[in-house]
Amino acid sequence: MKLIELKEVNKTFQDGRKTIEALKPTNFSVEGGEFVAIIGPSGSGKSTFLTIIGGLQSPTEGEVLIKDQKFSNLDEKERAKKRFNEIGFILQASNLIPFLTVKDQLKLVNKIKKTKLDEQRVENLLSELGINKLMNKYPSDLSGGEKQRAAIARAMYHNPSVILADEPTASLDTDRAFEVVKILARETKKQNKATIMVTHDERLTEQCDAVYVMKDGVLKNKQEE
């Protein structure tokens, strides 16, 4: 099943009198259990692409569907709601809230959904990622790799369909970076998520099921190149 699908999506910006096409019309989809990498130089439109998938900005034309349901055409409030339920973000500098312990980062999801914290699920998820002993630590007490693993836990915890990872290894050394990507690949399969990772480091794409290259707003499957 296609968890996320882009139909003829493009994005243009006005820069003075010039119209810049940041993303040329693109068709793209990711299925459950599929781990996709998007590589490309900076300024190629990778971030634009990711933010459109994540519903942080609307496409100029075309539409984004999540599980065959409208997403990009929803109003901002509805989109935020859907984003909260269906998308897990993992960002460069980690998306952890500095004043919450690892466990509280997850508990926040329950607080917003007004549900009870599922202790068992927290325990399982964190042991799976090898950070269950750090449950009561603040982000500032964690190493870079641990932070990213906690960020993965946060992104996975509310059981979204789609995981969007924006340069998740940017602040890590090579060994740690490989480890984080490996965990991401493993969890994608295990929990049947559609994971899209944006990176500029081609070596990290070994674990991926498909690799796309973004260049000047055009997205191409690497094998076609």
Binding site: G54, L56, K77, A80, K81, K82, R83, F84, N85, I87, F89, L91, N95, I97, P98, L108, I112
Partner: peptide
Amino acid sequence: SILGVMKAQGISSAY
């Protein structure tokens, strides 16, 4: 910046 991340995650402005 933290609030921006929270909003990106879909946490509402109201919350």
